[in-house]
């Protein structure tokens, strides 16, 4: 356990967060992953507003937001560690029993977001919208499955 925590801390140190802490508090991991998802939602939401027609379509802006989203997409996963099972969060315990499925869904989200960034950069509006919908499906799928809803 101790060894695991240290290697975890080391891994986090490499990414630059909580780097100096000898042990990372589970609640801090939750805060970290939630923050990454809030950042992700900020960028995805900005594109969403354009897809919904709330704000005018701006391909350059979409590409910019999609690029940021693609960089953020792989980040939350690191904050999902078994140590956080007892921490206060909206994550269902099923994550830890269905870890393979959880990881597959996470990978699908990362891939879809990367594709969105690529397509958005290429500049075709219709294709970008399709890629966007593919991306948020991966968000929703995992939320439906593993996010506590009350």
């Amino acid at each position: 356990m101790k060894k695991r925590m240290i290697s975890l801390a080391a891994a986090l140190a490499l990414t630059g967060i909580g780097g100096i802490a000898a042990e990372v508090k589970p609640q801090d991991l939750v805060t970290y992953r939630q923050s990454m998802m809030v950042g992700l939602a900020w960028n995805i939401g900005g594109i969403g507003a354009m897809v919904k027609g709330v704000t005018p379509w701006d391909q350059q802006r979409v590409a910019f937001l999609a690029n940021r989203a693609a960089q953020l997409a792989p980040m939350p996963r690191e904050g999902f560690t078994p140590e956080t099972a007892e921490a206060k969060s909206d994550a269902k315990a099923e994550i830890w029993t269905n870890l393979k499925d959880f990881d597959d869904r996470n990978d699908a989200m990362v891939t879809a977001t990367a594709k969105l960034a690529e397509v958005a950069k290429a500049g075709n509006e219709a294709a970008t919208k399709v890629a966007f919908l593919d991306t948020i499906k991966t968000c929703k799928g995992c939320h439906d499955e593993y996010q506590v809803k009350d």
Binding site: M37, A41, I44, G45, G48, A49, V51, C139, K140, H143
Partner: peptide, 13 residues
């Protein structure tokens, strides 16, 4: 219907 007015989906709605 009233709870729906205040709801959010954490993604884009």
């Amino acid at each position: 219907t009233l709870t729906g007015l205040f709801a959010n989906d954490d993604i884009m709605w």
